[in-house]
Simulated scan of single mutants.
Amino acid sequence: MQDLQVPSAGDFAKKIAIAEAEEAAKESRIQQQAEAEKKALLDQLTKPSGVSDEEAIKRAITMIEGAVRNLRTEVQVHRFPNQLCTDGGRAINQMEEGWEQTLTGVPKEIYQLWEKYFRDKGYKLRVEIVDFPGGKPGDVAMTLGWAPK
């Protein structure tokens, strides 16, 4: 009988440890990439959109028309991370007076567009926290409504 080399249990334990370390490193890289993408999106959303009021109005009307075709009386016009609020969405969640002052970037532009062009035409804008990951405020949704009185 040939002298077979039987690896030690420790050799296999090392292989498992190496594989686990490689998997953890891979997961870490994926997590870092996701965080970088989220940061880039937040950075983009905090800056002015560069969309003119005229173009924004056209986009809103297109969204409204699509909702009306589906017999809806409201449409979510934007959803964004609560980090775009100066207080992390606390004032919105508490429905405090002046909550709109906490908006920044694109959400602030949307609010201002509604206030300037849509409010007096009977449109309502509902802004609310729509998810609570880990029990804490998460994303914020802006919903435009036009229900008849």
Rank of each mutant, 00 (worst) to 15 (best):
M1V: 09
Q2H: 08
L4V: 15
S8Q: 06
G10N: 13
D11Q: 14
A13I: 14
I16E: 13
I16S: 07
A17L: 12
A17V: 00
A19H: 01
A19I: 05
A21F: 05
A21D: 10
A21R: 12
E23T: 14
A24W: 00
A24C: 03
A25Y: 09
E27K: 12
S28K: 15
Q31L: 07
Q32K: 06
A34R: 12
A34F: 12
E35G: 05
E35I: 02
A36M: 01
K38D: 14
A40D: 09
L41C: 01
L42N: 13
D43T: 14
Q44E: 14
T46F: 01
K47Y: 04
K47C: 06
K47L: 12
P48D: 05
S49T: 09
S49M: 07
G50Y: 12
G50S: 05
V51E: 05
S52G: 13
D53G: 03
D53R: 00
E54V: 10
A56H: 07
R59F: 02
A60L: 15
A60W: 15
I61K: 09
I61V: 15
T62R: 09
T62L: 06
I64V: 11
E65G: 10
G66E: 15
N70A: 13
L71T: 08
R72F: 07
T73H: 10
V75S: 11
V77Y: 05
V77L: 12
Q83H: 07
Q83T: 06
L84W: 02
L84S: 08
T86F: 00
R90Y: 11
A91Q: 10
N93T: 02
N93W: 02
Q94K: 14
M95F: 00
M95E: 04
E96V: 02
G98Q: 08
E100N: 06
I110K: 11
I110N: 03
Y111H: 14
Q112R: 01
W114K: 08
F118P: 09
R119A: 02
D120R: 10
D120W: 02
D120Y: 06
K121Q: 06
Y123N: 02
Y123G: 01
K124S: 13
L125I: 14
E128T: 10
I129C: 08
I129M: 02
P133W: 13
V140F: 11
A141S: 14
A141N: 11
T143Q: 01
K149I: 01
